[in-house]
Design a protein around this nucleic acid. Structure first.
Lengths: 234, 234
DNA sequence: CGAATAGTGTCTCTGAGACATTATAGG
DNA sequence: CCTATAATGTCTCAGAGACACTATTCG
């Protein structure tokens, strides 16, 4: 590590914002990766621009690099790492962005610089640690260590917050069936859940409003569609 | 908000690290505040120096401004705010530091620039929001909005992690009684807990190792002293 | 022995897993 | 009527609150 002799010892450095655009695709946690010239794939990211807040910067990166608008967004953590030039150091702020599955298809069709990756979590429960990514056909993507760490943090955060927060609904369309909600939970937690218990728990929380409508196109009994109803107050 | 015309739109700014040195004092969550000239009290903080990681910077600030060494330390969150000069913007990374109660007394005796503040959480459960501080005699301290927000985040984080992590033990000396552990939990959660249930839960987690020793100096039956035993593996 | 707190046994209630049963759509 | 899935009823088990009871130290 190089030491600089400066007039002021104060560190004045570039700020990098790195984003994980995540969803549940085919029942598996998945994310969008941008192609990096000659380096395979990496998380979408860019430097913070003058006048931006961190959250606005993350939204700009998502819109520019992954063509995703109005995501649910959440800060993960911040660390010191090398800057884009590679010699000096910079600060990186990692963000997690969640969207419903259907909002991944348009960006993937429109840009060949984007790739879909399936998340591989090599640890159980809330142990924590880095996570990996592979293509939908199963070939592993090479990730830099920082990206694997960020992704691991993202999965840990999701598993921790899923049960008492709205993150599960950020991964679903506005109207959804209880089975879809359960699929999302199972994908994030990496375990199978008990159906009656899951239904009871979700309905008891008061988060769900039945719409009276039912899904269409199934060749069996159609499930009722629910809507997320944010709880006002404590 | 002022816009700058620069050759590069890249934001190259100072990084500020802000720390909450927290403990449980007399059964109440408390923290150390530094005196700011002409401005009352504020959270200890300083700019990131060249070559420092964020965590090392937080430790330096704690050692320098609050005379606290080897704390349990945890990153809270990062936001864009005004820098120390007040005109341009900077990035602030907030850290939470936890120490046992007895490690607050030496710094408070040694430095008259430090003040002890008791945390006031104006919300129940895990609702979240800013928190306040008052002196041990009950007079409120004025906090800037950012500090109140950071403090609220800290309390929210503590409440959320208390039950499944080691943060509770970071607030206790190496050997402690189950009553002390329960006092810590009650102080953080802001509720009274059931004694037998609390004992069972803690002992069942396998986190505690009985030392065989007992506390001394009490005029009643002395409690057994326990030690925290980190769980290896999942 | 009295006071004060440590530590435990037991009842009950609640929430969740397991499993079986009923309900409803298309073919 | 068959099949596949939705939705629900019920049994059981585990964890936690409530409460009372026993244990142990000092004075």
């Amino acid at each position: 590590m190089s030491k600089h002799i400066t007039a002021s010892p104060l560190e004045r450095i570039a700020v990098r914002v790195q984003v994980i655009p995540m969803s549940i695709v085919d029942g598996v946690p998945a994310l969008l990766l941008s192609a990096v010239v000659g380096e395979g794939h990496a998380l979408p990211g860019d430097n913070l621009l003058v006048g931006e807040t961190l959250e606005i910067s993350a939204q700009r990166i998502l819109a520019t690099e992954a063509r995703i608008d109005e995501p649910y967004i959440e800060q993960l953590y911040t660390f010191v790492g090398p800057d884009s030039a590679g010699d000096a150091s910079s600060i990186t702020v990692a963000y997690l962005a969640l969207v419903p599955e259907d909002r991944f298809s348009d960006p993937l069709k429109a840009s060949d610089r984007l790739a879909l990756g399936e998340v591989i979590v090599p640890w159980g429960g809330e142990t924590g640690g880095p996570a990996g990514v592979c293509s939908p056909t199963g070939e592993p993507f090479a990730l830099v260590q920082d990206d694997a760490d960020i992704l691991g943090h993202a999965m840990l955060r999701l598993r921790g917050k899923l049960d008492y927060s709205e993150v599960g609904f950020a991964l679903l369309p506005e109207r959804f069936t209880l089975r879809q909600l359960q699929d999302v939970h199972e994908a994030i937690l990496g375990v199978r859940l008990n159906k009656p218990a899951f239904r009871r728990r979700m309905l008891d929380k008061g988060w769900l409003a039945a719409t009276g409508e039912r899904e269409t196109g199934a060749s069996f009994r159609p499930a009722e569609l629910y809507r997320y109803r944010p709880t006002k107050g404590a």
